[in-house]
Lab assay of single mutants.
Amino acid sequence: SRSVIRSIIKSSKLNIDHKDYLLDLLNDVKGSKDLKEFHKMLTAILA
């Protein structure tokens, strides 16, 4: 869910600018399909 993804971003080791950017992107995501794609992208970034 959106709140879980937000929590993953906030607890990541990324610097604050990257976190803010990803949180802004997350706010722009519409629909469950796009949310799944965003989660895939985030997982790849944090891997």
Rank of each mutant, 00 (worst) to 15 (best):
K30E: 10
H39F: 14
K10H: 11
S12Q: 01
L25D: 01
L23H: 02
L25V: 07
T43C: 09
G31R: 05
L22T: 00
T43K: 13
E37D: 09
L42N: 00
N15H: 13
A44H: 09
L14N: 01
L23D: 02
S7D: 14
L42M: 06
D28G: 14
R6N: 05
D24M: 14
L35H: 02
T43A: 09
L14F: 03
R2F: 12
D20L: 09
T43Y: 10
S3L: 09
I5V: 04
L26V: 03
N15D: 10
I8Y: 03
R2E: 08
K19N: 01
S1L: 15
F38P: 00
L35W: 04
D34C: 06
L23Q: 02
S7F: 09
I9C: 00
S32T: 13
D20F: 08
V29F: 03
K30R: 12
V29T: 09
S12V: 03
K33Y: 08
K33P: 05
V29H: 04
S32L: 11
A44I: 12
S1E: 13
L46G: 02
A47R: 12
L23S: 03
S1Y: 15
L42P: 04
D34T: 06
S11L: 11
A44N: 11
D28H: 11
S7Q: 14
I45K: 03
L22I: 03
T43I: 14
V29R: 04
A47W: 08
N27R: 10
S7A: 08
N15G: 12
S7C: 06
L25N: 02
V4N: 11
E37G: 06
D28Q: 12
H39K: 12
D17Y: 05
T43P: 02
D34S: 12
L35V: 05
L46Y: 02
D20R: 15
I16D: 13
L35G: 01
V4M: 10
S3A: 13
G31C: 04
T43V: 13
D34Y: 07
D24H: 13
K30G: 06
Y21D: 03
I16S: 15
L25Y: 04
S32E: 14
L35I: 08
S32Y: 10
I45G: 02
D24I: 12
L42C: 00
S11I: 05
K36Y: 13
D20E: 14
H39G: 10
N27H: 09
R2G: 05
V4Y: 12
D24P: 01
Y21H: 09
K33H: 13
I16Q: 15
I9G: 00
F38R: 01
D24R: 14
S1D: 13
E37F: 10
K30N: 07
L25I: 06
I9E: 00
L35K: 02
K36E: 14
D28E: 13
I9L: 03
L26S: 01
Y21M: 07
F38G: 00
D17E: 14
I45A: 06
A47M: 10
R6H: 05
L22A: 03
L22D: 00
K19W: 03
A44W: 09
K33Q: 07
Y21A: 09
I5P: 00
H39P: 01
K13N: 15
H18N: 05
D17R: 15
I8T: 06
Y21G: 04
G31P: 03
R6P: 01
D24F: 09
D34P: 10
S32V: 09
I16T: 13
S12A: 06
N27F: 05
L46W: 04
K13C: 06
K33F: 07
I8H: 03
L25F: 05
N27A: 12
S32M: 12
L14Y: 04
L26M: 05
L14I: 05
M41D: 03
A44M: 10
K40G: 05
K33E: 11
K30C: 06
F38K: 00
L35E: 03
K13V: 08
K36L: 13
S7L: 11
A47S: 09
L46M: 08
K13I: 11
